[in-house]
């Protein structure tokens, strides 16, 4: 009877530990999935492409804008498979912006303000000088 009871306690302990282990693994998996479900690079490409387009659209000629793009630079530096293409490109003729972190060819977004943007990326900063065409 004692032996049988001991086996029962051992079984219960094992089952409880296995269950706790499963719950922990499950919880961590869900957390990992939720935080990594959208590629950070793709998300940041989209955010910055649209942010820059809205800045250009709302700017008047004569405006100078300095935008912190350190998030983009950090992601690009961490991604060892990234291409060597520039992070940001502003096309004055086609009126579009491309943000490319070298993951999936980048995100392109257009703007409607017919201005000439003199731009450059220096370190972590994008400078844009909005001029009349």
């Amino acid at each position: 009877m004692l032996i049988k009871n001991k086996k029962g306690v051992d079984d219960l302990l094992f089952m409880t530990l296995a269950f706790l282990f499963f719950v922990t693994v499950f919880g961590l998996s869900v957390l990992y999935f939720a935080s990594h479900s959208k590629n950070a690079a793709v998300l940041q490409e989209e955010i910055y492409a649209k942010k820059i387009a809205l800045i250009i659209d709302s700017a008047r000629p004569g405006t100078k804008v300095i935008l912190d793009v350190s998030e983009l630079v950090d992601i690009k530096e961490k991604n060892k498979y990234a291409s060597t293409s520039p992070i940001i490109h502003i096309d004055n003729d086609g009126h579009w912006i491309q943000v490319n972190l070298g993951v999936k060819g980048g995100i392109t977004y257009s703007y409607f303000n017919d201005v000439h943007v003199v731009w450059g990326v220096e370190g972590n900063k994008l400078t844009m000088d909005i001029k009349k065409k």
């Binding site: 999935f33 998300l43 387009a53 809205l54």
Partner: peptide
Amino acid sequence: AIVVLITTSLFYSGAIDVKEAEAKI
């Protein structure tokens, strides 16, 4: 797990919507 998977996928599948901001500009 299935509910979390579906909800997260639905949440991130949408593009960042700036159409209204553009219309206001």
